[in-house]
Design a protein around this nucleic acid. Structure first.
Lengths: 209, 209
DNA sequence: CCTGTCATCGATATCGATAAGCCATCGAGG
DNA sequence: CCTCGATGGCTTATCGATATCGATGACAGG
């Protein structure tokens, strides 16, 4: 039964941070978490190492690990970056997408909608990131996937922190359908339009009514 | 005397990969590296975890760790991304730079030139990345630093892999002076021009004579 | 009162051993 | 001959114990 310990610890901590259950400045200790999560120091350590790579925690040597500050300006830059990366990726993906790719994407889409039906906000978010990453992976720019992942993570963290971005989970999940439809239809202009609109409305940066 | 074990292992492995001593597809084992580098499995493990975060290795569960492929298209995208990130960062840095920042930047510059005088290519490269990162840090966009670092790492890996990009180390090191000079002078146009030109010539993508 | 030194304490960093997973290979049965 | 299942070997994953570091606070001397 012991398997993927570190992986589950990682998911759990990531969830707590992105959902703002752990707030910036909070101090974590490896042994403390190990006790909480019923595993050894090693597993926690590995998870924290990865979280540091994702920019969610800051490991300060022997003085413990703290949750990183929510950096609004960086979040905004990352959203811009994300937009650029995904749009360029989508253009390439259109020329390379296979039937198998599409099936995989649609499967993720369905799981996302199922999670939305369960009102499981975190699961929806994970599937959302899965979907965007899987779409990007079709572009073949493999080395850039993790950068995109990081941008997404921070965008979402900011979105969930800002109290004014609330949308029903079902709506959130459904918003991806037109993107996949355009991809399936091989409609470059439509794909760019739908994906661009989608990214533009992740965070409403201006309080424009 | 034991300290910074993992850190030294990390640097060493990073050097071997970026300098293309370890070529794509090569398989590494944690215990094998531990023996080679005279340390325990934990230190190697931590280093590999970080290298995976940097996109230089791919950890395939219990099947070992392999060096990632050199992805030319991603490298090109990353160079674009880097250009954008650094130029935007520099614009902000100009408004925030302090005397202390400048002193620190100049110190790095001097160390880079010293390394160039020693013909230590890897040290020059490390100082180069230090310098660009330190400059970017002045912008205050802290959460984006690691993304920039990753882009730089891959740009350099590609540059060193492509046999036609050779420049004297001294010249490489000196090329940063006009950038710092423009920063010191508070010259926005000059900074953008010098930094842009610098980034444009890291890799000559076209074989334009 | 202020300052510099040192003991203590809480945390990480590292190690070595063990459990467990994955692959290849070999062997038996159809 | 082909296929399927067991087995051995190599690797990571996890644990528990220990070395070591850095901060903190007590304390003595100025």
């Amino acid at each position: 039964m012991p398997e993927a310990r570190a992986s589950r610890v990682l998911s759990e901590l990531r969830r707590r941070i992105v959902m703002n259950e752990l707030t910036p400045g909070a101090v974590l200790t490896e042994l403390g978490l190990a006790a909480d999560l019923a595993c050894g120091q090693s597993s926690v350590r590995e998870a924290l190492l990865r979280l540091e790579g994702e920019g969610l925690v800051l490991r300060a040597g022997r003085q413990g690990t703290t949750i990183t500050d929510l950096d609004v300006e960086s979040a905004s830059e990352m959203l811009d970056l994300r937009r650029r990366i995904e749009l360029r990726g989508a253009r390439r993906a259109l020329r390379r997408v296979s039937a198998g790719d599409l099936a995989g994407l649609l499967a993720i889409q369905e799981r996302m909608e199922a999670a939305a039906a369960d009102s499981d906000a975190w699961a929806v978010l994970e599937r959302d990131m899965d979907l965007h990453l899987a779409l990007f992976r079709v572009s073949g720019l493999h080395a850039m996937g993790p950068i995109l992942a990081r941008c997404m993570l921070h965008s979402h963290r900011f979105r969930l922190w800002a109290p004014w971005h609330r949308r029903s989970l079902i709506e959130t999940a459904r918003r991806h359908r037109p993107i996949l439809a355009a991809l399936q239809a091989g409609d470059a202009a439509g794909l760019a339009r739908e994906l661009g609109a989608h990214l533009d409305t992740i965070v409403e940066r201006d309080a424009a009514a």
